[in-house]
């Protein structure tokens, strides 16, 4: 994933006053890309991909389920990455990025769980199975909620940033442990009635639909996170000159509209 503040100009865009306008310029492009890719993905998912031989039409849920599950895990990794960068390099922007990512990651977790349940009902006959993947997805949601609750409960921004970063890193270290322990537990307890390991063989068009939807989810995440981090930057940098100027521009824009 290409991040706007990596690459040769990394130091320049690590400064909030440079990143703020950049984020504002980039976000609409990512949002537009997300909208177009979603339309293309939906078209592939519903009009090109064939009916699945064993599951019938209900398998079409996977076109959002799988990208959402990927995204929820990937976003946590990116969050941990920014937390580590923040702790090591002491850059305020990194902490803000990880806090802006969390709600979107949690949203993808909920989507993955919900679509998993709705897919499971007709396929396995039950909304919820204590399957390794579902269970670790639920635990990942709790990790997100813990991070969000902690950063919101602390009033001092400096402490909130660092405390959130520490719990994000502790969580990231534990995610593989949780996943493998749940998997181990699952193989011991799971009855033979439900076989989840047997992946349905996928037609190329199915895979294409899923990948396009996954890229759309990435573009959406980038757009919404950049949009969310902007007011957070204003809030933190409110004592600076450039935020004053920015706010005056906003006031003029609002006044012009009214």
């Amino acid at each position: 994933m290409s991040r706007p503040d990596r690459g040769p100009s990394i130091l320049r865009f690590a400064a909030p006053q440079n990143f703020y306008p950049l984020a504002g310029r980039l976000a609409p492009w990512f949002a537009g890309a997300a909208a177009l890719l979603t339309l293309a993905g939906l078209w592939l998912s519903f009009f090109v991909a064939p009916t699945d031989a064993t599951q019938g039409e209900v398998y079409r849920v996977i076109f959002i389920h799988v990208p959402a599950a990927w995204m929820s895990m990937f976003v946590y990794l990116v969050m941990a990455f920014w937390s580590a960068v923040g702790l090591v390099m002491n850059t305020r922007l990194s902490f803000l990025m990880s806090q802006a990512l969390a709600p979107t990651g949690a949203m993808f977790c909920v989507v993955a769980l919900w679509t998993g349940a709705l897919w499971g009902k007709p396929t396995w006959g039950t909304y919820w199975v204590w399957d390794a993947r579902l269970t670790s997805q639920a635990l990942l949601l709790f990790l997100y909620l813990g991070f969000i609750a902690l950063t919101r409960a602390i009033e001092d921004p400096r402490r909130a940033d660092r405390a959130g970063a520490i719990i994000a890193l502790v969580g990231a270290v534990n995610v593989p442990v949780i996943y493998f322990s749940v998997k181990w537990w699952n193989t011991l307890h799971q009855g033979a009635s439900v076989s989840l390991t047997k992946a349905p063989s996928m037609a190329t068009t199915m895979l294409a639909g899923m990948l396009v939807m996954a890229v759309a989810a990435w573009a959406y995440t980038l757009a919404v996170v950049l949009w969310r981090v902007r007011p957070m930057i204003l809030e933190r940098e409110r004592h600076t000159e450039w935020v004053g100027a920015e706010l005056m521009r906003e006031a003029l824009r609002q006044g012009g509209r009214a």
Binding site: V58, V61, T115, L118
Partner: peptide, 20 residues
Amino acid sequence: NMGGAGFFVWGSYGLTFALV
């Protein structure tokens, strides 16, 4: 109708786009 699975398919897509 989605081959009888309309509730499950549209329920999934509906909630996803509502959340977005």
